[in-house]
Design a protein around this nucleic acid. Structure first.
Length: 109
DNA sequence: AAGGTGACCGGCC
DNA sequence: TGGCCGGCCACCT
């Protein structure tokens, strides 16, 4: 078992419904460590090795597309979100609280 | 083996 | 109002 942490993050990321978004902190909280949001972000960094990870649905608590710079295209992330019916304005998700989806808390795995 | 980094978050000044 | 700092934990050099 190497880096099960990644799999846990991916497990939740994959559960993000279509047209919904979540924050790193929310995923971190789902993992049981609400303050380890950085790890979530880092895990998403490795998500490039997996095509099943909708990293574009994961943004920071501000609903800002902080990780868009890591995508292949500069505005690819925004296009993907808009493609799912999510409006993005100035690199920020409009009505983020509405589209926000909180993953189920994984008490144990 | 130790130190630095990171797609964050929350609090403090 | 906004900028700075600490915390958190895994990965990389």
């Amino acid at each position: 078992m190497e880096t099960n942490f990644f799999e846990r993050v991916y497990e939740i990321a994959r559960k993000i419904p279509y047209g919904r978004v979540t924050s790193y902190g929310a995923i971190a909280k789902a993992l049981g460590s609400g303050r380890s949001a950085r790890m979530v972000g880092w895990a998403m960094n490795a998500s490039h090795n997996f095509d099943d990870i909708p990293a574009h649905r994961v943004v920071n608590r501000n609903g800002l597309l902080t990780g868009k710079h890591h995508f292949h295209g500069t505005n690819l992330m925004q296009q993907l979100l808009e493609s799912e019916g999510i409006k993005v304005k100035n690199n920020q998700i409009v009505d983020f609280d509405i589209h926000f989806w909180q993953p189920e808390i994984l008490t144990e795995l």
